[in-house]
């Protein structure tokens, strides 16, 4: 056997091996790809197609191309004459949703960071108990928890009755059915999403760095903002994203605690598929919401990349 023949046999074997590997890989990927295709890409595709159609009279769509859904988001034919004017209704619904979601994120951060820090600085064997307590509410359905919150903050709810019994207030505080109630509900629902990633960052934190900070005459605040926070930043960013995104699309919380007077994005989209009978516009609004979320994630990725290259 000449060396050349030997070589080509070897190459063929390697080639065969690679091909096998490729086939195996394809098979192993198939279940995941099927699921992604079936439950993510396909429905998204339908949503995109629907958003460019014309609404049917009693719901559904008629197969007639139209970009009205997107135009409608920003403009409306004046209710009363037919001119195209800027319409702030939907934009203001989006802005209110963004505001509430941002507020809830900030609130969750203010409550969640100290909680995570507290847990991370406990002895190792106690931490699991605290983490267990943080995740405990997830054992109950979100709807039930939100309803429980409604019972707590309503006019004749626990908080008001206790405050009135203690003669701190004379008439009940109006919390329920305001933006404040939605805000409280959102923080309550999503707080664990903030605590857990921050805890994961803080748990790995090398506390000798904190001591080093003190040794270099930094006071507590300086240590917090120049040592701990920068090291916990990945967790803080992840937590903020995990609270902001579901907060933005929240449906149950504004529905139950907000009193139905003002819409958040989720309720506005739901309404298009119900009373308003405008499925294309509902689809378009859902896609605009998704675009917003992707934008937030993109900004985060870009910022992280810049941060990484800056450090490098």
């Amino acid at each position: 056997m000449s060396g050349r023949e030997h070589q080509s046999a070897l190459a063929a074997a390697i080639d065969q091996n690679r091909r096998n590997e490729r086939v195996t890989r394809a098979w192993l990927l198939a279940p995941a790809l099927t699921i992604i295709l079936a439950i993510s890409i396909l429905p998204l595709g339908i949503t995109v197609v629907y958003s460019f159609l014309t609404p049917g009279t009693y719901g559904g769509v008629t197969w007639e191309f139209s970009t009205d859904s997107y135009v409608q988001f920003l403009f409306q034919r004046d209710i009363f004459d037919d001119t195209l004017v800027f319409n702030s209704a939907y934009v203001s619904i989006f802005l209110r949703s963004i505001g509430l979601a941002l507020g809830a994120t900030l609130g969750a951060l203010i409550l969640g960071f100290p909680t995570a820090y507290f847990i991370a600085t406990k002895p190792r064997e106690q931490r699991n108990i605290w983490l267990f307590l943080i995740t405990l509410p997830f054992w109950t359905n979100l709807l039930i928890r939100t309803y429980a919150m409604l019972l707590i903050i309503r006019d004749e709810g626990i908080i008001n009755i206790m405050l009135m019994k203690a003669s701190i207030i004379s008439s009940p505080l109006t919390i329920l059915y305001t933006d404040t109630a939605v805000f409280i509900g959102l923080i309550y629902s999503f707080l664990p999403f903030m605590v857990l990633p921050i805890y994961a960052s803080l748990e790995k934190l090398d506390f000798s760095l904190v001591e080093a900070g003190y040794d270099l005459y930094a006071n507590r605040l300086k240590v917090l903002f120049h040592v701990i926070v920068p090291l916990a930043k990945p967790g803080i960013v992840a937590g903020c994203i995990l609270v902001f995104i579901p907060g933005l699309g929240a449906y149950i919380t504004p529905e139950l605690l907000g009193g139905g007077k003002k819409l958040m994005i989720g309720n506005m989209i739901a309404m298009q598929f119900g009373a308003s009978r405008n499925w294309p516009f509902g689809s378009a609004a859902a896609l605009i919401l998704m675009a917003l979320v992707i934008l937030v994630l993109l900004v985060n990725v870009l910022a992280a990349r810049r941060g990484a290259s800056g450090n490098g």
Partner: peptide
Amino acid sequence: PQEVVDLYNKIWTQLKQ
């Protein structure tokens, strides 16, 4: 009729913004 429903829808969204 549909054109009235459309007007009602607009009033409703305007009201609930």
